[in-house]
Design a protein around this nucleic acid. Structure first.
Lengths: 135, 135
DNA sequence: TTCGGATATTTCCTATCGGAAGTATAGTGT
DNA sequence: ACACTATACTTCCGATAGGAAATATCCGAA
């Protein structure tokens, strides 16, 4: 799992929205970008992807912007990272869902180590939600 | 369902890869872009998204490029369109998975029409695969 | 007042840039 | 013949440009 800045920015934006969600209020990219220090045009792409994946809803125009489409407790870190960075496993030969052969497979003990890591990482990311990190 | 050129380009690229798969090992963005008339730098973004979603695999460097990660018969049009354009339903109030209230709901007969459309579209896109359209 | 149009605002979409990182091949010196 | 280096190639990543589409607000005319 290689955490790109894409994922980091996306998580930051979601946390910001979770913290500042008011009833039916939308928050603009500009506001989030300024608050979290994210290049606004880059963030725009990430927000659109998050919207397509149904984590966010939006409206255009004045007073437009983005809001969470579900409760912060229903958005896991795993989902977000998978969306932007692909698989969670450190290498494909230990991936549960997307197995492919890689060199380390020749050493079973080595493979075991990375499987343990995969299990820990995925369990941790799967059970931690935006709600857990917003306070 | 608003079919953007993103989705169209992505489908074109997948069909091209399906047609030319065992011939060459990996096929470059440049080759696909030229063959299908797609702006190469734009296609690059789409290919990366398709890779992250595990429809493609890739290698870098000389003789590098992209190849299908699964059989063409296992890639439905629905999956690809959802990835790039979000929900399939023509409007959210008739969406099975992502319901949200919209104005037409007030007229039940109207709603019925769009639900019928949704059913037909999703059934059609869900059961048509890249393999079906590659010949 | 009330309607309609102009204006401002913000998402949404297509497209491109520049460079880092990884991979294969060619060339060079011993 | 072999090791090492340079080079060419291609994905991968962060970032930005420009304009269309949608929405809210403001202002002037009747």
């Amino acid at each position: 799992m290689k955490l790109t800045t894409r994922s980091e920015y996306a998580l930051l934006a979601l946390v910001y929205l979770a913290r500042n969600q008011q009833a039916e209020g939308y928050i603009s990219i500009e506001t989030i970008a300024k608050a979290q220090g994210i290049p606004p045009k880059f963030l725009e792409q990430l927000m659109l992807a998050l919207k397509r994946a149904h984590f966010l809803r939006s409206t255009k125009g004045q007073h437009g912007g983005y809001a969470l489409a579900k409760d912060p407790s229903e958005i896991t870190l795993a989902e977000v990272i998978r969306l932007f960075d692909g698989a969670l496993a450190p290498t494909e030969s230990v991936s549960e869902n997307f197995y492919e052969s890689t060199p380390i497979e020749k050493e079973k003990k080595l493979t075991r180590v990375f499987k343990d890591i995969r299990d820990y990482v995925s369990q941790k990311l799967e059970k931690t939600t935006i709600a857990d990190v917003m306070k």
